[in-house]
């Protein structure tokens, strides 16, 4: 367990590499997904205003 945390003395390089990658890719996924949901809701709103089913 201790080896896992210290990464053989390279914890200062290994963990930031993984943390930055995880953060950036999660943020990217969240951004893409929220834009998709927003676009979907917006289209639904316009379509209901037009009074026609899609």
């Amino acid at each position: 367990m201790n080896d896992f945390i210290t990464q053989g003395g390279y914890a200062g390089y290994v963990w930031p590499a993984y943390a930055i990658t995880a953060l950036a890719l999660s943020a990217l996924a969240a951004w893409a997904l929220s834009a998709y949901r927003k676009a979907k809701a917006e289209l639904a709103r316009i379509e209901s205003k037009e009074g026609r089913p899609s």
């Binding site: 890719l25 990217l28 996924a29 893409a32 834009a35 998709y36 979907k40 289209l43 316009i46």
Partner: peptide, 27 residues
């Protein structure tokens, strides 16, 4: 796979946006 997934989602988003635009223009 993650790239392909997010790419697909972003293309779908753009198509939805385009459809919204066209409806608004028509209105």
């Amino acid at each position: 796979l993650l790239f392909l997934l997010l790419w697909l989602i972003r293309i779908r988003t753009a198509v939805l946006k385009r459809r919204t635009w066209n409806l608004m223009l028509r209105a």
